[in-house]
Design a protein around this nucleic acid. Structure first.
Lengths: 141, 141
DNA sequence: TTTACTGCAAATAATTTGCAAAACT
DNA sequence: AGTTTTGCAAATTATTTGCAGTAAA
């Protein structure tokens, strides 16, 4: 079953209605695979049909996050992206200069996570953390 | 020399004009010592005088950041705080539930920082990073 | 049939900006 | 005097919301 079908079935089984709009949105985000922001997703859908409103895109993304099927990642400076959970956990390395987003191995933070727990009793949510900095290209410029 | 005086002298030496508004704003943020957001800072100043406009607060904070005297920290979900550099480097632990911000020792990330550099050639800006999660109180609720 | 979902347009909220007046240096 | 800086109000931008109509189940 494609990830897209899985999402739809999950929502249906939880009593949500599957509208053509939701199908389009889920298909777009799942098929795209990578992180997207609401505008990009909306633009992607507009290429095929104008029958989906931007408000519906926001509402559907919110639903996916609430239902644990996607995560909302706040990159700072007002930039917010969404990623479905087919796309595993990782760290987002966001270039302050060019805006590029690199993915890094989540494992690098496991020691840190344990220290936060033992030293500060803080349960960090590191599933999709983001770190600002400079990518290689922008360091040399 | 108080940190507040230092900031003022630094700005003056770089050719910026010291207006009563800037003095008030700098005094408020430096005296407060901790992180503040623009609204809180504005409210703090309003307690003493109404002669400072919110736009000026934003412009002055921007100036302090540009001039390397303060940092702007994006906590996600639209929350932005500012801290002057008298307030050393540290990690911000932001509780997703109650919004409380705890400070943690910056040192915990040094190994991670090196790995980012060697494995991804990414120069992370970890001066004032923020991590979302749940604080002890909210974990037990 | 029932009531969840959608589109639309207006509301938010936090920040930014244009411009003429005020005020540092 | 000559610019910088300020206040004010309007613009921005991304997102949210109210509400009446539409359509899944």
């Amino acid at each position: 079953m494609s990830p897209c079908q899985t999402f739809i079935e999950t929502l249906r089984s939880r009593g949500f209605r599957i509208t053509p709009q939701r199908e389009m949105i889920i298909e777009a985000i799942a098929h795209q695979g990578n992180h997207v922001n609401a505008d990009e997703l909306f633009a992607l859908i507009q290429e095929r049909t104008h029958a989906v409103n931007i408000a519906t895109v926001y509402r559907t993304l919110e639903l996916l996050v609430e239902q644990g099927l996607a995560s909302r990642i706040d990159l700072g400076e007002g930039r917010v992206i969404y990623a479905t959970y087919q796309h595993g956990s990782h760290i987002h390395l966001v270039c302050r200069q060019c805006g590029q987003v690199l993915d890094a191995d989540q494992e690098m933070l496991s020691a840190f996570n344990q220290q936060l727990q033992s030293n500060y009793q803080f349960a960090a949510d590191l599933q999709h953390i983001s770190v600002l900095g400079l990518c290689l290209d922008c360091q040399t410029k």
